[in-house]
């Protein structure tokens, strides 16, 4: 069964049309840009990057939410 599934995908990818391969290239490039560049260097989770524990995060967000700015 697993071999059949593997062969299904394998044959699908190897017999793919030129435009299909081009699209896969775009998908892979896009995922690399999104996860290996954007997520890693530009989109760090703000709270996770500043605090280690949930208690610290609660303390910080509580301060933020109970503060009225001008």
């Amino acid at each position: 069964m697993l071999k059949k599934i593997y062969l299904f995908y394998y044959e699908g990818f190897t017999n793919m049309s030129k435009s299909g391969k081009k699209l896969w290239l775009i998908i892979i490039l896009k995922l690399i840009i999104m996860f290996a560049i954007l997520k890693l260097f530009f989109f760090e989770n703000f709270l996770n990057s500043q605090f280690n524990t949930d208690e610290e995060k609660i303390e910080y967000v509580s301060k933020q939410l109970t503060k009225i700015k001008e």
Binding site: F43, E44, L47, N48, K57, L65
Partner: peptide, 13 residues
């Protein structure tokens, strides 16, 4: 991604 980075108070809330 933006929820976690730019809207962290919202994400937590």
């Amino acid at each position: 991604f933006e929820f976690g980075t730019n809207w962290s108070n919202y994400s937590w809330f």
